[in-house]
Computed example of a mutant assay.
Amino acid sequence: MSTEAEGYDAPRALLTLYDEALPSVYGYFVRRCADRATAEDLTSDTFLAAMDAARKASPPPITVPWLIGVARHKLADHYRRRHDRFTDPVADVPESDGEDRWDAEVDRIVAESVLARLPEHHRTVLALRYMDDRSVPECAELIGRTVHATEALLVRARRAFKQHYPEGGAR
């Protein structure tokens, strides 16, 4: 669908796509946010930003992959505003039924910290593939690349992640 085409109504296209796109956009956030309220707020922010873009003189093509791109930017903005997220010391060590649960939580925190330092395209493809459990072809479609290019990007992103992950931290 060309945005240049006569009669293209981007706001209407967004409203038409809303029911189909909402689970994807919300699902994107719910896997990456500490709580549902934040995921809901960021989902709302994404659709508001999308409507603003749709109302422009030359609106982008309104698709689910484009909305996921808007969502990625909203999530990045959210984490930029919380720049101190990984610098706060842990106040109390939570009680644990076993050391394994604590180790898993520490590994998760370290992995999030490493992801935050990677370039956006590496974070995106790793999150889609491993956090969202998307297939490589699904990742390719969502980020607008070929399957082969996405596989190559995943190789580079995993390599970058491993380079930044602390020694002895990976299990």
Rank of each mutant, 00 (worst) to 15 (best):
E120T: 08
G169N: 04
K74L: 00
L142T: 02
R36K: 14
Y165V: 10
T150I: 01
G169S: 15
V125W: 06
W102F: 15
D45C: 07
P61K: 07
P94D: 03
G27A: 01
E167T: 07
I143V: 14
V136W: 09
A116N: 04
H121F: 13
L128R: 13
D132L: 14
I143Q: 06
W66F: 06
R171L: 07
M131K: 15
A76M: 03
P137N: 11
D92H: 12
L42S: 10
G169F: 02
A37I: 06
K162C: 13
T87S: 15
P59G: 00
S135W: 15
D103A: 09
M51R: 10
I68T: 00
G69I: 01
V110N: 02
C33D: 11
D35V: 07
V147C: 04
E4Y: 11
A37V: 10
Y18G: 01
D41F: 06
V136N: 10
I143H: 08
T87N: 06
S24M: 00
L154C: 10
L48T: 10
T124Q: 09
R80Y: 05
R134D: 14
C139T: 03
D107S: 09
F29A: 01
A49W: 09
A54K: 02
R156I: 00
T38W: 05
T124C: 13
V110I: 12
H73T: 11
Y79W: 12
F47R: 03
A76Q: 03
S58L: 09
R12M: 05
E20V: 02
L126W: 03
E99Y: 12
R145E: 08
R134G: 02
D9V: 08
L153I: 00
L22Y: 04
A116Q: 05
T124H: 14
A127H: 15
